[in-house]
């Protein structure tokens, strides 16, 4: 069952340099950058000419709100179906 051609990964060395992403403060900066970007894009809705093919598209911030709502719904929906569908990794390898 094992792959014969891979080189076994080595562990992190003690002298490994610390990366920018390893710092929790930088992760917070990234999250804040995303919040700022979202706010800017949401407000951008006031500054361009829309070409709606459907009345929903005329709603202020439609794409932003819709994406957020369906994003949350899809992730939670997936989590919900996993309750019913999750099985052990060797489920099909066993007899029965």
């Amino acid at each position: 069952m094992t792959e014969s051609h891979h080189i076994p990964p080595t562990g992190p060395g003690t002298d490994e340099p610390k990366r920018w992403l390893d710092d929790k403060a930088n992760l917070r900066k990234l999250a804040i950058a995303l919040f700022v970007l979202c706010a800017a894009l949401f407000l951008a809705d006031a500054f361009y000419v829309k070409h709606p093919v459907h009345w929903l598209e005329e709603t202020f911030g439609f794409y932003a709100l819709y994406a957020f709502v369906v994003g949350v719904a899809l992730v939670l929906g997936a989590k919900l179906i996993r309750v019913f569908l999750k099985r052990d990794e060797d489920y099909y390898d066993r007899d029965g």
């Binding site: 994406a67 957020f68 949350v72």
Partner: peptide
């Protein structure tokens, strides 16, 4: 313009949803 902005809104807010969750 509208197409680019709409797509960026879609992506940014989907990412926001994941980050919040």
């Amino acid at each position: 313009t509208y197409h680019v902005i709409n797509q960026l809104q879609l992506l940014a807010f989907a990412a926001l949803a994941v980050v919040m969750l």
